[in-house]
């Protein structure tokens, strides 16, 4: 199986959101681990969405997989902010524009985004907590500012990029 991963973010705070986060992680992991050959990533997400109990809070996610041989990667964006693709040549690009969160509307479909993912390329996946951070004068840390900051540090090692994103 190709390497895969996801990040999820549950609407709301506190114990209920934390429990739903565990349920969401379990559901996504199980869906990937029991995936039949040839089943598309976007169809897995659509099925999880169809079955998500309407009484639970919704969540957003980026679910992705990497094919190291070709080499390319594929992600499904479900209400989660657009990840940043940091190329080995230091160029930085947003991937994807939109997608329905999981658990908001049952009968919706999802798209996957495919992109070349070669040695030295990195993908930065983050939750809306990053771009919704407010500075002391009430300005939000926008996608544009995140991109500018990441571009500035794109030649540095990954821990450096993470460290500077923490000090927005």
């Amino acid at each position: 199986m190709a390497p895969w991963g996801f990040q999820i973010d549950v609407a709301g705070h506190g114990a209920a959101a934390a429990l739903v986060s565990v349920a969401g992680q379990h559901t996504l992991s199980q869906a990937i681990l029991t995936r039949q050959q040839g089943v598309l990533l976007e169809d897995i997400v659509a099925e999880i969405n169809r079955q998500w109990p309407p009484e639970l809070p919704y969540f957003t996610t980026i679910l992705g997989e990497i094919d190291p041989v070709r080499p390319f990667a594929r992600i499904v964006q479900a209400g989660h902010p657009s990840p940043l693709l940091i190329r080995a040549d230091r160029s930085v690009h947003f991937l994807g524009e939109s997608g329905f969160p999981i658990g908001v509307l049952q009968q919706v479909s999802y798209d996957s985004i495919e992109f070349d993912f070669d040695a030295g390329d990195r993908l930065l996946i983050y939750s809306d907590g990053v771009i919704e951070t407010e500075n002391p004068v009430g300005e939000f840390y926008s996608e544009d500012r995140l991109r500018a900051l990441v571009t500035e540090h794109a030649d540095g090692p990954t821990p450096k990029i993470l460290q500077c994103s923490r000090h927005l």
Binding site: D9, V10, A11, G12, H13, Y58, P101, D128, G138
Partner: peptide
């Protein structure tokens, strides 16, 4: 309203 988060959006939906 200057800001809506995921909880606010959930109520609107």
């Amino acid at each position: 309203v200057e800001f809506v988060d995921s909880s606010g959006l959930g109520v609107i939906v």
